[in-house]
């Protein structure tokens, strides 16, 4: 059965719902859930102040309404399904370890921060530092899989250590910044500081890289997305590993993204640069 939290009115500032986990909500009655405390800024409120509550949280939790100011949805999610019928705020799926989180709109900054497992599917766009760490944390995403059908803002995969991020659209500047390991795949990527200070890991560009100033990719002769001397001159990318990676990316990708992956698979011509050499890194950017 699904527990539905329908937003009654948009809060004036960010509302943190990270305490509303399936494990915590499951044993509670609807009235008990309504009385659970929620803080907004310095003010103490409760769930009923902001949400209409219906159903029981046995296997599924749903958020309805414009949740762009609702932060921490799906924090420490450890199983079952969470659906946001609309957009969500910052830190969606933080420290998530299992299960699936589906967002039918876009999400704010720091989605999948500290994520260790499970799947996050975002139909719209993702905010800054997707899979990145909170300030003061050493590592970002540590496992699991994030699929974004739209675009991702700056610093995707910042300090990412493990897991996979697939972006159907474009990844913003500083993609893979200080990346430690894991995989980021994007349809297109803003080449500004791409892979800056990355140590290991893979950034895969499915279509083309674009410069920060260009509105559309230059299909005629796209320049390498990474710049020497911080990255090695491009060489042919190893095909065996790529086939495995593309198979994995295509599973669970949206229809359009999966089609783009298949198209690029047979187009071939993959190139690879290693870096960031200025940081002793051996990460790879493949395009």
């Amino acid at each position: 059965m699904t527990l539905t939290l329908r937003l009654r009115s948009t809060p004036p500032t960010a509302l943190d719902v990270s305490s509303l986990t399936l494990e915590r909500l499951g044993p509670l009655s609807t009235d008990q859930i309504r009385r659970l405390p929620l803080r907004i800024g310095c003010q103490a409120t409760d769930v009923a102040t902001w949400f209409d509550v219906a159903g029981r949280a046995d296997e599924k939790l749903g958020f309805e309404g414009d949740c762009r100011r609702i932060d921490g949805i799906g924090t420490a999610w450890a199983g079952g399904e969470l659906v946001v019928e609309g957009s969500a705020g910052a830190q969606l799926g933080r420290r998530m370890s299992a299960g699936i989180v589906r967002v039918q709109g876009s999400v704010g900054a720091l989605a999948a921060s500290g994520m260790r497992g499970g799947v996050i599917e975002i139909a719209g766009d993702a905010g800054e530092a997707l899979g990145g760490p909170l300030r003061g944390e050493r590592t970002g995403m540590r496992g699991g899989r994030v699929v974004v059908q739209g675009n991702a803002a700056a610093a995707t995969g910042h300090r990412m250590r493990r897991g996979t991020i697939l972006i159907g659209g474009q990844a913003g500047p500083r993609c893979g910044w200080e990346m430690v390991a894991g995989t980021i795949a994007a349809g297109r990527v803003d080449s500004t500081d791409l892979g800056f200070a990355m140590r290991r890991g893979t950034i895969l560009i499915l279509a083309a890289a674009i410069s920060a100033s260009a509105a559309t990719p230059s299909a005629a002769d796209p320049p390498p997305p990474v710049r020497p001397p911080c990255f090695t001159p491009p060489t042919a990318a190893p095909s065996g590993f790529l086939q495995l990676l593309l198979d994995d990316l295509a599973r669970g990708a949206g229809t359009e993204t999966a089609a783009a992956i298949e198209q690029r698979r047979w187009d071939g011509g993959w190139l690879r640069s290693l870096g960031d050499l200025s940081r002793g890194g051996l990460g790879e950017v493949i395009w």
């Binding site: 493990r162 995989t183 190893p238 590993f241 495995l244 990676l245």
Partner: peptide, 23 residues
């Protein structure tokens, strides 16, 4: 110079060799 990669729950090693990479 080897690279570890987890794909679909399986772990692979990519070892650089003279014809490219041994997976």
């Amino acid at each position: 110079y080897q690279i570890s990669k987890s794909i679909g729950g399986r772990r692979y090693w990519r070892v650089p060799v003279m014809d490219g990479e041994f997976l």
